[in-house]
Design a protein around this nucleic acid. Structure first.
Lengths: 130, 130
DNA sequence: CGGTATCCGGTATGATACTG
DNA sequence: CAGTATCATACCGGATACCG
């Protein structure tokens, strides 16, 4: 995204300057699966297959990609146990744990307003031309 | 996100089932431009062109689409002033203002850890095979 | 078990042009 | 000013198959 780093009016603005890099970061946690993975891993180290089952709906491919992305961003640690049946565990980093708390609020907001949002959509769709 | 309305059992589990609706909601604010638009509008009613300039980087098309989506979700109100030069103002709904506060924390987190994330990426990219 | 590789469609986004 | 219409494209993400 990129709201750039150019000028910033005064009103709603100084957002742009700081938002650019911020959004870049946010986009990583804003992905379709990122939050789900983060939450799933919040309870402690979790294995690949576990994640696959927990974040039900995610494909192996997407799980891997997101896991790599989160790992790269320093939100998850990937620990490979050189055992016979491969065992890889993913765990949140301290930084991610902080995020998790904030995410909890976001989720709380979503839960609180889900009915309202659903209603708003219905209303909006009901009178498109009205 | 996840634990919806129940509490999280012990594992990371029944997350999937209940997360669905939550994710659906979150996905709307998690879009590439949603947060930017929301923040830009947080300072008060803002006009289309203003948004176009503030959320710099966004195309007119995406602005419109996101604006509609946010309006449909009941996060933004669209007020058309029947003046000669069309004037349309977008403002946050109370529900969105609440979200804004939470978003602020998310942004705060992003700001606090941006350096760490950047460093993590650099480190990750530096020793891929190491 | 834990991935990686490939094929493929749907959507998000960008660029451009036109309109009320 | 505030969109809408259209076109082309990049990438997301699912399904499937193969590998260490």
């Amino acid at each position: 995204m990129s709201r750039s780093h150019t000028d910033v009016p005064d009103g709603a603005a100084e957002f742009a300057d700081e938002a650019c890099p911020i959004t870049e970061v946010l986009d990583h946690v804003a992905g379709k699966w990122s939050i789900g993975i983060l939450v799933a891993a919040a309870h402690g180290p979790i294995r690949f297959t576990e994640l696959e089952r927990t974040v039900k709906g995610i494909s192996r491919r997407m799980l891997t990609l997101n896991l790599r992305k989160l790992e790269r961003d320093g939100l998850l640690t990937r620990t490979v146990h050189p055992t016979v049946p491969p065992k890889v565990e993913y765990a949140l980093t301290p930084m991610a744990r902080e995020l998790h708390a904030t995410l909890g609020e976001l989720v709380g907001w979503a839960e609180r307003h889900r009915p309202a949002i659903t209603a708003a959509r219905a209303a909006y769709d009901a009178k498109p031309a009205a």
